[in-house]
Amino acid sequence: MVQCLDGVKHLLAVLFKCCDLELKQPRGLEDPQVLARETVFSVSEVEALYELFKKISSAVIDDGLINKEEFQLALFKTSKKESLFADRVFDLFDTKHNGILGFEEFARALSVFHPNASVEEKIDFSFQLYDLKQQGFIERQEVKQMVVATLAESGMNLSDEIIENIIDKTFEEADTKHDGKIDREEWHNLVLRHPSLLKNMTLQYLNALRLCFP
């Protein structure tokens, strides 16, 4: 019986060790060629981007990973600011869903913001940004939540009646299937009618990466 318990303990220890290794993020610049092949960045841009990553990831804890505090600090120069959108963007960057960003996650996500990235990639990323519950469609309630949160963050004041009115008109235009939600196809069509919805999806800085981080 004791031998059997020891065996189980040993098995669990091995299992935890495996899980731990699995959960650890690859740190550092492992293979710039692979990232350059799979993103819009060139090898030298990947290397320049890594310099930016090192700077951001060492702001609070120098562990070669970006946590949410460092992410906010880099964006707003303060970690105190409440931002629903910064939270959403961080969550979308965090494809491994472990609350920290490795360089690969950072580079792959920023690639979507490159001026040379396709409009389709940008439309898809922006759709996920608004699909708070990740259900594959944007609900009216999600839009209201974001409007209210972002207005509050910016100190803008609009009455509930005006907000409801704006959302009504938005759904009248976007929800062409009249099912009370905006799916990817409807989002795609809405963005094509209003390209300004993608204006924050392109970062001109990414064209000058090698100049910023030689």
Partner: peptide, 29 residues
């Protein structure tokens, strides 16, 4: 502001304006 131009925006344009989400902060000192 509840001015006319704000009310004529769609909800996503309004969110974009109010959120001031811009990743260029990454590149600025």
């Amino acid at each position: 502001p509840g001015d006319k131009s704000t009310r004529q925006m769609n909800a996503f344009q309004l969110i974009g304006m109010a959120s001031s989400l811009d990743l260029s902060g990454f590149f600025e000192e």
